[in-house]
């Protein structure tokens, strides 16, 4: 490994020196789809505490960010939906965990804006609801807008399908979700990939996250990849039903 290489031998090494108590962390994934599972495990093992975590969801019991909830390493979550996690619910109701709900699109846009150097933006989402309380509002052409600020993080943890040694990333299917947006909004972005390839192997036209956004990366394979809700259809001739 060259001294200026972005590639680290494992998740623990990739987090060494960049995660500390009290930092703000972004974590990609939607439910447990496309979560940086190796980096989350390493974060748990690092023992850092009092984390503020920006993530659409809070994982599920025993997996994803659920691991960091069990060890009480998270002080505050900024999320849009946390419905699948009993430990989360318990800590929140007991007052042990702070929670800031953002509408999912506002969360995504705050992250995009943060990464793009946009301090704040006006959005229709949440106007006239609890979400707008305490925020500047403006009426333009009869339509109410709420001022929302960009979000950045000390460290972003993302998961991609393929990555090259320069940190160029390609995601797979709906495992993309928040990952490319968060990759742009971390002062340090650490990526884990299923396949690590040499520079030149990825088609430059097909790269989702240019390597400039990625500071460190690891090969995370083999992957467990959990499924929250197995939904299948029966092999019946001429069935029009597409959902159960």
């Amino acid at each position: 490994m060259k001294s200026n290489s972005k590639v680290y031998p494992d998740a623990a090494a990739a987090l060494r020196g960049v995660v500390k108590d009290g930092i703000t962390l972004m974590c990609g994934g939607f439910g447990v789809c496309g979560i940086p599972e190796k980096l989350i495990s390493a974060l748990r093992d690092s023992g850092v505490r009092d984390l503020t975590v920006v993530s659409n969801n809070a994982g599920i019991d025993g997996a994803g960010l659920g691991l960091l909830l069990e060890t009480r390493q998270i002080r505050k979550m900024i999320s849009s939906y946390v419905g699948e996690n009993k430990e989360f619910e318990r800590q929140y109701l007991a007052g042990e965990l702070q929670l800031e709900f953002n509408p999912q699109g506002t969360l995504a846009e705050r992250i995009r804006a943060g990464g793009a150097g946009i301090y704040a933006f006006f959005t229709k989402t949440g106007a006239g609801t609890l979400v707008s309380e305490g925020k500047e509002q403006r009426v333009v052409d009869g339509e109410a807008y709420v001022l929302e600020t960009g979000l950045t993080a000390d460290v972003s943890l993302v998961k991609a399908w393929k990555g090259d040694t320069e940190g160029n990333l390609v995601y797979r299917k709906t495992a993309r979700n928040f990952n490319p947006n968060m990759a742009t909004a971390g002062r340090i972005t650490v990526a884990e990939v299923e396949e690590l390839v040499e520079v030149g192997s990825l088609d430059p036209d097909q790269i989702h996250t240019p390597g400039i956004y990625v500071n460190r990366l690891i090969l995370g394979a083999p992957y467990e990849k959990l499924i929250e809700k197995h939904t299948v259809r029966k092999r019946v001739e001429n069935s029009h039903a597409v959902v159960a």
């Binding site: 939607f30 789809c33 979700n177 092999r235 597409v242």
Partner: peptide, 28 residues
């Protein structure tokens, strides 16, 4: 699907579920 897909198809056949392909309800 708001998690990042246009053109949602039917549920997969048993054994063909892909963890990287879910809808906003986290269903395969």
């Amino acid at each position: 699907s708001e998690n990042g897909m246009l053109g949602i198809g039917p549920f997969p056949f048993e054994g063909e579920e892909d963890p990287d392909l879910v809808n906003a309800g986290k269903q395969t």
